[in-house]
């Protein structure tokens, strides 16, 4: 029983990271309707930025917030300089630019901070004794913090999209950019804002999970794929769906990997992908996504 709970909790913690990064993907998708392949690397780079602030003497919390601000601004710059000039329908060009960014950031972090893992401090106490016992398993403060921040961000985004004038404009823009312009919305600025929010959220994730994963240039690589899976399952337009899907993926993946011998640890991650394939076959818009409805 204890082992089962521990495995659920482990999977849950992974799932939280998937869901968190999926939120960032959702922000970009909300804006431009594109998948940013460099999202994970932007988060990784921001985590290193936070490390730089910390190494320069800032307290951890301020260092993380500073990295979020830098990420937020950088996201806007990337959108303005590299994405917007390509136009709205240049799917391939945008995909390629995000691939180029991916390569640059990944290699760039290595150039600046070297290839070795760096220690990154958690903003909460994280000695081996800092945990809460829960049904016989240990919930570390660090993991609780990540989860709490995730919930806060998710609820914040949900409220923004659902109840504010700006959120309404973002949804209208993602769904029908031409109509949005005819309603007086500044579509380009709204897209830029989506990128900024995504990069800011990404910076938060990078810095928060760095203490558990250690800070390396490859830390986000695998997460991005599962985040994309989570965002797809959750339906790219639903922040709550993306987070739930991320957590479900994390838990199912860990349980199947632990209890089905045939799968084992090698194929554990494949479970998430098989779920993704299966769901897309049945519901092409994801589990929680709104079906595009149209009647002529």
């Amino acid at each position: 029983m204890d082992l089962f709970v521990a495995r659920v909790v482990d999977g849950f913690n992974n799932g939280v990271i998937y869901g968190f990064l999926a939120l960032a993907l959702v922000c970009v998708y909300r804006g431009t309707g594109h998948l940013n392949l460099a999202q994970g690397e932007m988060a990784m780079f921001s985590a290193f930025t936070a490390y730089a602030f910390y190494a320069a003497g800032l307290p951890v919390v301020l260092a993380i917030l500073g990295a979020c601000v830098v990420g937020f601004i950088a996201g806007g710059v990337v959108e303005r300089v590299l994405i917007r000039p390509l136009g709205h329908h240049a799917d391939y060009s945008i995909l390629l630019v995000t691939i180029g960014l991916f390569l640059m950031l990944n290699a760039g972090a290595g150039v600046i901070w070297g290839g070795d893992p760096l220690p990154f401090p958690a903003p909460v106490p994280s000695t081996p004794d800092d945990y809460i016992s829960f049904l016989g398993t240990r919930l570390r403060y660090q993991q609780i913090l990540v989860f709490v921040v995730l919930v806060v961000v998710m609820v914040g985004l949900f409220l923004l999209f659902r109840f504010t004038r700006l959120g309404l404009a973002m949804r209208a823009t993602a769904s029908n950019p031409d109509s949005a312009r005819l309603m007086g919305m500044r579509v380009n600025q709204i897209n830029g804002l989506g990128w900024m929010m995504a990069a800011g959220v990404g910076a938060l994730i990078g810095a928060l999970v760095a203490p558990s994963t250690t800070l390396t240039t490859g830390m986000m690589f695998n997460f991005l794929i599962y985040a994309a899976a989570a965002a797809t399952l959750g339906g790219f337009d639903s922040p709550v769906g993306a987070v739930l899907a991320g957590i479900v993926l994390g838990v199912v993946e860990n349980l199947v990997g632990s209890y089905v011998d045939w799968v084992g640890s090698d194929l554990k991650q494949a479970v998430a992908l098989v779920i993704l394939l299966a769901v897309l076959m049945v519901r092409p818009t994801g589990l929680f996504g709104t079906k595009k409805v149209e009647r002529v």
């Binding site: 000039p85 390509l86 630019v97 691939i99 390569l103 640059m104 990944n106 290699a107 760039g108």
Partner: peptide, 21 residues
């Protein structure tokens, strides 16, 4: 040497998207 080549490669990919569509 080293990872700088990766940065150059990434930059080249982006540059070509803009310069040679």
């Amino acid at each position: 040497q080293g990872p700088i080549s990766g940065v150059l490669f990434g930059a080249l990919v982006i540059a070509l998207v803009f310069l040679m569509p």
